[in-house]
Amino acid sequence: MEIRNDWTKEEIKAIFDKPVLELIYEAATVHRQHNDPSEVQVCTLLSIKTGGCPEDCAYCPQAARYHTDVKVHKLLDVDFVMEKAKKAQESGSTRFCMGAAWREVRDNRDFDKVIEMVSGVNSLGMEVCCTLGMLTETQAQKLKDAGLYAYNHNLDTSEEHYEEIISTRTYDDRLETIDNVRKAEISVCSGGIIGLGEANEDRIGMLHTLATMSEHPESVPVNALVPVPGTPLEDQEKVSVWDMVRMIATARIIMPRAMVRLSAGRVRMSVEEQALCFLAGANSIFAGDELLTTPNPEVDQDKAMFQTLNLKPRASFKGAAAEKFLV
């Protein structure tokens, strides 16, 4: 199957709307053409600076304006982060992502510490990823020079629905950061969240934006909202597994070589539901008992699931992203 960047919304909708079993079958077929279906990359996500964020993302417990149970903490020490990275590697993770609750990166001592963290984790032989908010081209290059492999910057939702969720930065701001990451030749990790009160048209719109970028993101996280008390979206209903499967399968078909990440919301899914997602083309998960500030399945549970489903952890620096970024 050829890699296309000229998908229309109508074409994506036709795929998205297929009978679910037919959709899963097609996605599974495409997945096998481009990936080893028995491999799933295990990633660990650590919040290196938590809470106190000036943004107003309606889903996020780290926004300073919402009254949630999140305990604010300043940027972690480099040594502590390195210990966490080593433990993650020992438990099977091959990618280590560090998240800071910042609106944007500022050129200060905290950024210097992050650069040190990136360099340290890179020296372990893990794929290093960061999600730090908006980023300039110069800052992206500094991270690249320190050994950053990937940068996460989610679109969250469609451009049309975006203003219902966030008012403190624009959709174009997000796209500009992704462009800056691309210019620095860092692997792009960008996806979104479902369950924000959006319509199917918004889910299709977000996938359309990702699939028509000049280059597909190497990594596409599909998150199900985990409603947090104190946030504007605290009363949202649980996302159905079939909604997750439709998103994952459609993403797999239109972006065949991307890592499609079964991300937030996994803690509320059974092994059987997760197996459907893997069948539909998901080939990455986040391990560890917490995803930034929301709960996640424990490592032992994931090991048992991998054993049951005969899955194996995917090695670092493998596949389309590695071919491009590690020449």
Score class of each variant (00 low, 15 high):
120 G>L: 02
109 R>H: 11
100 A>Q: 03
129 C>G: 13
162 Y>R: 13
111 F>R: 12
128 V>W: 00
143 L>M: 12
166 I>G: 11
163 E>F: 02
96 F>K: 06
94 T>M: 06
110 D>P: 03
166 I>Q: 15
101 A>T: 07
108 N>F: 05
99 G>H: 00
110 D>A: 13
104 E>Q: 06
152 N>D: 13
125 G>R: 10
140 A>Y: 00
144 K>C: 13
83 E>N: 05
164 E>S: 13
101 A>M: 08
94 T>E: 08
97 C>N: 07
90 E>A: 02
106 R>A: 14
84 K>P: 03
104 E>H: 11
95 R>W: 06
87 K>E: 08
115 I>H: 09
115 I>Y: 10
122 N>W: 04
130 C>W: 02
161 H>M: 08
114 V>D: 05
128 V>H: 04
142 K>W: 03
92 G>F: 00
88 A>P: 07
100 A>R: 00
117 M>E: 14
168 T>D: 09
160 E>H: 02
94 T>S: 12
82 M>G: 00
83 E>I: 03
157 T>C: 12
136 T>N: 11
90 E>I: 00
85 A>V: 09
85 A>L: 04
141 Q>I: 04
112 D>F: 07
134 M>F: 14
163 E>D: 12
156 D>N: 15
161 H>E: 06
154 N>K: 11
85 A>N: 06
112 D>E: 14
96 F>N: 01
118 V>I: 12
103 R>V: 03
115 I>S: 03
127 E>A: 09
97 C>Y: 01
106 R>I: 04
100 A>H: 01
87 K>Q: 01
101 A>E: 13
141 Q>A: 03
145 D>R: 15
165 I>D: 06
145 D>T: 14
154 N>E: 08
95 R>I: 12
150 A>L: 03
160 E>Q: 01
157 T>N: 11
